[in-house]
Amino acid sequence: MIVFVRFNSSHGFPVEVDSDTSIFQLKEVVAKRQGVPADQLRVIFAGKELRNDWTVQNCDLDQQSIVHIVQRPWRKGQEMNATGGDDPRNAAGGCEREPQSLTRVDLSSSVLPGDSVGLAVILHTDSRKDSPPAGSPAGRSIYNSFYVYCKGPCQRVQPGKLRVQCSTCRQATLTLTQGPSCWDDVLIPNRMSGECQSPHCPGTSAEFFFKCGAHPTSDKETSVALHLIATNSRNITCITCTDVRSPVLVFQCNSRHVICLDCFHLYCVTRLNDRQFVHDPQLGYSLPCVAGCPNSLIKELHHFRILGEEQYNRYQQYGAEECVLQMGGVLCPRPGCGAGLLPEPDQRKVTCEGGNGLGCGFAFCRECKEAYHEGECSAVFEASGTTTQAYRVDERAAEQARWEAASKETIKKTTKPCPRCHVPVEKNGGCMHMKCPQPQCRLEWCWNCGCEWNRVCMGDHWFDV
């Protein structure tokens, strides 16, 4: 396979590697080409510095992935760790964990309700045991953590790749202090920090972006993250068709209702045909949960890209028209025109101005929308079919299609509260000796007794199943 190397943020060049090629071997190839010592090179990928003893497969490097290699003399205490030698983080029983690669970060837990604080980093599902597709590297999971809308060759929703760059020099040479644990960490600028490894760059702020994971991409090709779309790892039924499908869209209502993408497309087109989208002054033209839940309008309007190009163009047109109407304007009634106009409040005669090729020149009556006339309008008909009709959803289907309910059931079956801080902690095999993952707590306690870890627990039921 081919990976592209950008040395000291210059133009990239291809390097041929195998899945079992080590990072140090990659350094040696680059060092020979650039005429520099291999031990002064640092390989940066997806916000993480890659260790010498890791392989291309370990690092989730795919065909035509772009890695950054910078030349920086080692500072005291760094060289041993980078070589894969006596790194205290690798000691058996050590409590410190390697910062998780962005290629394996899962933010789907952050669609849980606000009262489930902490689960994004504490609760991990076991539903990723799908067998890898044919042709994928051994052991590589097909679980997708992110979804994007690819405006490039795909023109559809695709699995996405999370990447990070330095907000100062805009190069992907920043190593994160810690990985993101929720969508806010990724979507809110300057929320996460790190250290830029580019020479002479003092940058410390992280800037995240997404790429389409279905095809090789260049540095400049980015895609918009659709953070309401998630892999259906909890096997929730769709609120409309009641099938279990994946991926799904999880509405931001209190129940976190789930809808499959085909039904979401149908829901949007139906509402669009009836012009029953909601115009929100802050958000724009949007839709609420299909069950009509309060405070559930979709905030990231790129989710409506699921409509496809033709329907999305209609959505944008109707949204612009609705904006004009909300501002007190009118639409030209001549067939084939429909231009938005903003006449004076007491102006009865409205002319669709033909300047700049935008208007048709038609003069019409503001009251009856017919060709302009003197005197009273002959008839004014009330528009028919403008009443909002509820999208029919079966109550039982709505009850079963809740992301929140599956989460709470998982928590109930696989977790116990920490005796000190009461945060839910998952036990997935292993011994009875637990350690609270909350940095402010870190209590060592017994899963069996529910009390602080002691010699009695150690001698009596340390390794009970």
Score class of each variant (00 low, 15 high):
Lys349Gly: 06
Cys95Thr: 10
Gln389Trp: 08
Pro335Asp: 05
Cys59Val: 04
Ser65Gln: 05
Phe4Asn: 10
Trp54Pro: 00
Gln316Met: 12
Glu28Val: 03
Pro37Glu: 13
Cys436Gln: 00
Ala172His: 12
Leu107Ser: 15
Tyr147Arg: 02
Gln389Phe: 10
Gln311Leu: 04
Lys435Tyr: 15
Ala92Val: 11
Leu41Cys: 04
Gly385Ile: 08
Ala320Glu: 14
Ser218Trp: 07
Phe277Arg: 00
His303Pro: 01
Pro180Leu: 02
Arg128Ile: 11
Pro99Tyr: 09
Glu310His: 06
Val111Glu: 14
Glu370Thr: 06
Glu98Lys: 10
Leu325Lys: 05
Gly85Leu: 13
Gly292Phe: 04
Leu174Ala: 04
Cys59Tyr: 04
Ala134Cys: 09
Trp447Met: 06
Gln155Leu: 07
Val36Asp: 01
Ser193Thr: 13
Ala406Pro: 13
Leu119Ala: 15
Val164Ile: 14
Ser22Thr: 14
Asn254Glu: 14
Thr177Pro: 12
Arg334Ala: 07
Thr414Arg: 13
Trp445Gly: 02
Trp462Arg: 00
Ile229Leu: 11
Lys220Asp: 13
Asp243Leu: 13
Ser19His: 10
Trp403Phe: 07
Leu307Arg: 00
Thr21Cys: 08
Ser116His: 11
His279Leu: 09
Arg366Cys: 07
Pro88Gln: 10
Trp445Pro: 00
Phe210Ile: 05
Glu322Asn: 05
Ser198His: 08
Val380Trp: 08
Thr240Gln: 15
Arg97Asn: 12
Gly114Pro: 14
Ile142Phe: 14
Thr242His: 15
Gln34Ile: 15
His200Thr: 13
Glu309Cys: 09
Gln57Ala: 13
Val17Trp: 00
Ile2His: 14
Arg33Gly: 04
Tyr372Cys: 08
Tyr315Gln: 04
Ser101Glu: 14
Trp403Gln: 02
Gln389Cys: 13
Lys435Val: 15
Pro180Cys: 00
Arg33Gln: 07
Arg245His: 08
Ser407Asp: 11
Asp115Arg: 07
Gly47Leu: 05
Ser109Thr: 10
Glu207Trp: 04
Arg97Ala: 14
Met434Arg: 04
Gly308Asn: 06
Pro439Arg: 08
Ala82Glu: 14
Asp18Cys: 09
Cys263Thr: 00
Cys352Ser: 02
Leu358Asn: 15
Cys418Ser: 02
Ala91Thr: 10
Arg75Met: 13
Val330Asn: 04
Val36Tyr: 04
Tyr285Asp: 02
Arg163Leu: 11
